[in-house]
Design a binder for these strands. Structure first.
Length: 606
RNA sequence: GCACCCGUAGUGAAAUGGAUAUCACACCAGUCUUCGAAACUGUUAUUCUAGGUUCGAAUCCUAGCGGGUGCACCA
């Protein structure tokens, strides 16, 4: 459609001989405000200064030519063109065009564009795309920051899938390193101080995880006041790396398993299924090797007993890749990881999603990888998001000042249950639905805004269930579902093929209910918003910005709820009912697919 | 100190360089015998400051002010 319009625009301005100036310019926009038409062009405004005429005058000249095209039939699908504001030319499509697009949403035939396929594109047809996100560390708590990384990573992965990508989800976990050393250092302290024992097998998983959190916090805080213990911590760290202490190995394996099992429980609730898990215990080996090789080729060099990469030569920080104890740092492990990922399954593009506090470090690692494996580095991208921070300041698992993902999910689920208490739903289903609502509330709060910005989270004030919220979107779906159910019970025929514009116009004129006369119909606002869904997804993908989807869904839900409040959709004997039911179905399709992209489930009722 | 990011109603956010800066919360006033009130309708209020580029700036550039993050052996 828009190709036809762009050609018409170029045709209309061809006499001014500015083809070169116009090539590459975006000549056709989608106005945000629907009252400005379906498409608009600013061609008159960018051309006018060059030609030394007033924008509005030029726009009117162009308009005349376009009107000739319309009456000549070479701009079919366009109903009306007009000049507006400082010199925009707005295009209004015919109702037939919109109605055909609505029918596409409802086309549920196999391989059709509609139904659960509506919004899919082939932008990345078959491209192998890797998304690494969440990345919690065994032996440490899964906090709300991980929740944020998960919500963003999962939705980016899904948008990738909807764009035709062959997507794999990776999770990278720090199972070795200082934090594990602190854990065992803290355990030794507590064992001496209060005779603390390692949990028995019969203890619940969440108690075991709480135990790990406790000994880590002990180790980290105690070390802060006793920096003289550095040698002890390094000793433990070394033992973890080379697995030389038989007793510690056994405890380590247990603790790691507890953490992993615990994380898996959370992923299940969140709706993430990882294809592959990577560990620092593996990436450290590969990273160490690569960096050592790189010393010979001059990429890395020795300094003060450590091996460094001179990032300052590239406008970055100089950072340590192997510390003076011969152990690889985060930076070296990142080098190893890039190679591990690529060897596992060669990809076309790989995204690593982390909080932006790691921007500088990852930039250095990627620059180092570029020197070693330029072909792989070219395919790696770091997408960073803001931080989920508390009103009290930065979270710190060292001081125990963290909100865990588990507790947040629990609290939100309780709130959802409270709201549901009047509904007659069985206990099992009730719990499941409440969890879906909790996840929706959390994820939507994260995904409705630009991923780069911090979210200041007040644990006292709970997340919203109203207005601009995940549950609001879910509620709109449940409402639409219940309308469709009523229509089904009344035997309303909803055959898409039966709907045509002539009958609709006729029916609108003949409908005797005043309320129904206000109804949106093909060419109405709701319809025009609905058919933009595929474009919204494309934009989200190209800009890595899930919030466009969230923002869009809110607009759709809000418009639908107004429609719902003003118009009775299913009325016995009403000739417009089949169309209104179809429109409701289209709304439900778009909302469901959009929520799916955000990783949010739609409950059957709530 | 250096580097990067950010300053939009009382609060939290949105806005491919475009048209009257949008949305939600909160506040106030209404709406349940209808298909689910987790909803709807109405009211109030916003681009940090100073220059510049542009037909046009919340958006781009410069300076200032304010906030965040990172700057050598944690991740």
């Amino acid at each position: 459609m828009n190709k036809v319009i762009i050609e018409a625009i170029l045709g209309a301005v061809s006499e001014h001989g500015q083809d070169d100036f116009l090539t590459g310019k975006n000549l056709l926009d989608r106005p945000g405000d629907l009252s400005h038409g379906d498409y608009s062009t600013n061609v008159a405004m960018i051309l006018a200064p060059k030609l030394g005429v007033k924008p509005v005058e030029l726009a009117n000249q162009i308009l005349e030519k376009l009107q000739v095209f319309i009456s000549g039939g070479s701009l079919s699908g366009v109903k009306k063109v007009e000049v507006a504001g400082p010199g925009f030319i707005n295009f209004y499509m015919t109702e037939e065009v919109t109605l055909e697009l609505i029918k596409e949403i409802l086309d549920e035939t196999k391989g059709g564009s509609g139904g659960e396929n509506y919004g899919k594109s082939n932008l990345h047809n078959g491209k192998k795309m890797i998304y690494e996100y969440t990345d919690p560390n065994p032996f440490k708590q899964f906090h709300i920051g991980h929740l944020m990384s998960n919500a963003i990573g999962e939705s980016l992965a899904r948008i990738g899938e909807w764009s035709g990508g062959n997507v794999k989800r990776y999770c990278y976990q720090g199972d070795v390193g200082r934090h594990v050393a602190f854990t065992f250092y803290g355990f030794d302290l507590l064992k001496k101080e209060e005779g603390m024992e390692w949990p028995s097998d019969s203890m619940s998983l969440s108690d075991k995880v709480a135990f790990l959190g406790k000994i880590y916090a002990k180790g980290a805080t105690h070390f802060k006041d006793h920096p003289e213990d550095e040698a002890i911590v390094q000793e433990i760290n070394k033992k973890i790396y080379d697995k030389s202490d038989f007793e510690m190995n056994a405890l380590y394996d247990l603790g790691k398993k507890w953490s992993m099992d615990h994380f898996e429980e959370i992923y299940k609730v969140l709706g993430t299924k990882f294809n592959e898990y990577f560990f620092e215990s593996d990436s450290s080996v590969v990273g160490l090797e690569e960096v050592q090789k790189g010393i010979k080729s001059g990429i890395f060099e020795e300094s003060e007993g450590a091996i460094i990469f001179k990032g300052e030569n590239y406008g970055l920080n100089t950072r340590v890749f192997i510390n003076k104890f011969g152990l690889p740092t985060y930076e070296a492990k990142e080098v190893g990881l890039a190679l591990l990922k690529y060897n596992k399954d060669p990809y076309d593009i790989s995204y690593t999603i982390t909080a932006n506090e790691q921007d500088n470090v990852l930039a250095v690692s990627y620059k180092a990888i570029e020197q070693i494996y330029p072909e792989i580095a070219k395919k790696n991208f770091h997408l960073s998001h803001g931080m989920l921070r508390l009103t009290t300041g930065k979270m710190s698992s060292r001081t125990g000042d963290v909100v865990t993902g588990e507790s947040m999910l629990h609290d939100m689920t309780e709130l959802a249950l409270e709201k549901m208490k009047e509904r007659e739903i069985g206990a099992g289903e009730r719990k499941e639905i409440a969890e879906q609502i909790a996840v929706a509330a959390i994820k939507y709060t994260i995904l409705r805004q630009t991923i780069g910005k911090d979210i200041i989270f007040d644990p006292q004030k709970s997340l919203s269930f109203e207005g601009d919220s995940g549950p609001y979107l879910q509620y709109s779906c449940v409402r639409a579902k219940s309308v469709l159910e009523k229509a089904k019970k009344q035997g309303v025929s909803i055959n898409v093929e039966d709907i045509n514009l002539g009958d609709l116009n006729n029916d609108l004129n003949n409908a005797n209910s005043p309320k129904i006369c206000q109804l949106d119909w093909a060419g109405g606002k709701l319809e025009k918003m609905l058919v933009r869904f595929p474009e919204v997804l494309l934009r989200s993908e190209t800009e890595h910005a899930p919030h466009y989807v969230g923002q869009y869904l809110l607009d759709i839900a809000s418009e639908f709820n107004s429609f719902y409040a003003n118009t009775q959709i299913v009325v016995e004997g009403d000739i417009l009912t089949p169309y209104k039911v179809l429109l409701t179905k289209a709304v439900l399709t778009v909302l469901t697919n959009g929520l799916n992209v955000l990783g949010i489930k739609v409950p059957s009722r709530m």
